[in-house]
């Protein structure tokens, strides 16, 4: 099995499209940092604290590497899902397009094992992309903007998280982000099993993610009953890492729902893939 996963990873990382995500984050993160550095982040901090400035006198370095890394995590709403679907959506559809299913599915290896190896490679790619974002944003952020406490603003609540706890907070946040993004990867992987080109799964995944995000976040009463059942309602689980105190029961609930969604998406993919006739 490890051998199969190794070669799936090898194939994944030998493709040009895999590096689009890494190149994108490699360009965008330094660009954001450069932009913030030019303004020393003042406008952004003023915007964040607009509702609190009349009641509080805030001093010290509020804009530091931690805060910029937290800002960059907001790319997890749409940008990162897009980059993930580029690769996850190609995992099965790409083999169908290239005709290479005819090469690998006639081997004495069960389709389940082939699927598990491809899914593992997809999840590992997702994790590696998020780890790259973490390393790049924290590394560059701390290097350029320095360290300090993190001012976490949650609607009208201001929380100051001490610097000493921030490594563990970010470790938790990125772990939760990986867990959350695995649902997106699983969804794109599912769509990839339906079709024979990778464009369809990418567009379908983004349509579903954006559509459900709108429903999850719009304060419309008629959407309220369905919100608890949408994975996008729990997609921001990483933000729980910056709450004080950390709401572990909310994290557990969100992770449970997200995990269930990943499991359902993978099970559906398995059901389809096992019965799929390879006609290409």
């Amino acid at each position: 099995m490890f051998n199969l996963i190794y070669y799936e990873l090898f194939k994944t990382y030998a493709k040009w499209r895999t590096y689009i995500g890494f190149i994108a984050v490699g360009l965008i993160i330094p660009l954001i940092m450069w932009g913030m550095h030019l303004q020393a982040g003042h406008n952004f901090v003023q915007y964040q604290l607009r509702s609190l400035q009349s009641d509080f006198l805030i001093t010290g370095n509020l804009f530091n590497g931690w805060s910029i890394s937290q800002i960059i995590m907001n790319s997890l709403w749409v940008h990162v899902p897009f980059l993930i679907s580029l690769v996850a959506g190609d995992q099965l559809a790409g083999e169908a397009t290239a005709g290479t299913f005819r090469l690998i599915l006639i081997r004495p290896v069960s389709r389940t094992r082939v699927l598990v190896s491809k899914y593992s490679a997809t999840l590992l790619y997702t994790a590696s992309l998020l780890m790259t974002i973490a390393v790049l944003s924290l590394g560059l952020g701390l290097m350029i903007f320095g360290s300090g406490d993190l001012l976490a603003v949650d609607r009208d609540m201001l929380t100051v998280l001490p610097e000493v706890h921030l490594w563990s907070r970010f470790l938790l946040a990125y772990s939760l982000a990986i867990w959350s993004m695995w649902v997106i990867a699983s969804l794109a992987f599912l769509f990839s099993s339906f079709v024979e080109n990778a464009i369809g799964p990418i567009i379908s995944t983004m349509t579903v993610v954006i559509g459900l995000l709108i429903i999850s976040n719009l304060p419309v009463e008629s959407f309220e009953p369905v919100k608890p059942y949408l994975f996008t309602t729990y997609q921001d689980v990483w933000q729980q890492a910056f709450k004080e105190p950390v709401n572990w029961s909310r994290i557990a609930e969100s992770c449970g729902v997200l995990g269930a969604y990943s499991a359902v998406f993978f099970s559906m993919t398995w059901y389809i893939f096992k019965r799929k006739d390879i006609l290409s």
């Binding site: 051998n3 199969l4 070669y7 194939k11 030998a14 040009w16 290239a98 090469l103 690998i104 081997r107």
Partner: peptide, 19 residues
């Protein structure tokens, strides 16, 4: 059909490993 972006050797490694 093969993985066009890989060498002949790598393609052989992949299919060989699966068998």
């Amino acid at each position: 059909d093969f993985y066009l972006y890989l060498s002949a050797f790598r393609n052989m490694q992949i299919t060989g490993a699966m068998t």
